[in-house]
Simulated scan of single mutants.
Amino acid sequence: MKLTGVELRRISLPLVSPFRTSFGTETTRDALLVRVVGTEAEGWGECVAMSGPLYSSEYVDGAIDVLRRFFVPALGGSVSAVGVAPALARFHGHRMAKAALETAVLDAELRAEGRPLARELGAVHDRVPCGVSVGIMDSIGELLDAVGGYLDEGYLRIKLKIQPGWDVEPVAAVRERFGDVLLQVDANTAYAVSDARHLARLDPFELLLIEQPLDEEDILGHAELARLIKTPVCLDESITSARSAAAAISLGACSIINVKPGRVGGYLESRRIHDVCVAHGIPVWCGGMLETGLGRAANVALAALPGFTLPGDTSASSRYYRTDITTPFTLDAGHLPVPTTPGIGVVPLPDVLAEVTTSTEWLPL
């Protein structure tokens, strides 16, 4: 596709309620949107980096800088979606920025050709089951009220954020109150192998999984922990590519994998991770990073692939935003519809986008 330029647009969206994890508390989504403009179509991508380098080494200001100085100039004026990763391969890291740019090019290319992303990736479902991620709260009562509300809305799976001092007790309370609801926990690297005996106290609650209990670089530690507890170990931050997924599986470090497209460099690499996991009989599910409707649409398309057998964090727009920048995704019997129109299937609403935009920068090619 012949490109004429790339727009970097920063937006600020207040969250419906503060979202607290072991990394900190988010009250506003400070997001970077990437728009590529071609001679045949334009496309959008969303960078999922946070404001600071907390979840990973990436952050919004850094993503803007690396896109402006290195990635966009490296594309040149003509590129295909499959050519983005090779064009950027010599630059180390910055997978979230790479993913945003690749997604925007992919969106434009598919729009020009009249093909939806879901079909391009190999989706087999027209709707996907949805779970919800519940942050760390100030009290058990507040947690139970929140979980009850989400179940009343129709969510099919509950994920609880945990950390030392907020783990066994909240899990026990949710299990006691809500019975056999699909339940899992996410530690966001907050524990060490020496906590294995404590984490084994979660085994009686028959959780779907414990997500990323140890440091992202501690693959061998995860393999050891997996032998010491009965709850299935799922990796998130540790999985950055199909190669790292294959290595983790072969070492016995996980029996489930969370795929986040931004974390692994884009939707094409996400599909490769999916294929590796399917070949090894490892279930996958789609994680979330507080995406707007742009990122949510693409995540839903990915989650419609056959290996995504567990409900993901592809929640409705209202879970995070009172007003999304796209037509909102609405829960229907615990599911979200897979977009069927060309590209990622959604575009920003101009008036809303203008209202939440804090800066724009045009990079001609």
Rank of each mutant, 00 (worst) to 15 (best):
L110Y: 09
D65T: 09
H125D: 06
L101R: 09
E46Y: 02
V124K: 03
R119L: 05
V84Y: 14
G43Q: 10
S51H: 05
L117N: 07
V105E: 10
R69C: 06
A100R: 01
S57K: 12
P129S: 04
V79P: 06
E113V: 14
L54G: 00
A97L: 01
F91Q: 04
A123F: 05
W44E: 03
D126L: 05
R90V: 14
E109L: 12
L106D: 10
L101N: 14
C130P: 04
F70N: 09
R119T: 03
F71E: 09
A118I: 00
S80R: 15
F91S: 04
G83I: 11
A87Q: 03
A87N: 02
G93L: 07
V37R: 14
G77T: 14
D107F: 13
E120P: 00
D126S: 10
R115K: 13
D30H: 14
G38Q: 12
V66G: 00
G38R: 07
T39N: 15
R35F: 06
L121M: 10
V66A: 05
A63M: 11
A49N: 06
R35M: 11
E102K: 04
L106S: 08
V72G: 03
L32G: 09
C47E: 12
L54P: 00
P53N: 11
S51A: 15
A100E: 02
V37H: 15
V48G: 00
S56Y: 10
M50D: 08
A49R: 00
P129D: 06
L121H: 12
A108D: 10
Y55K: 02
A89V: 14
V72I: 15
V84K: 13
S78F: 14
S57D: 13
Y55G: 00
R35E: 12
H92L: 06
R95G: 11
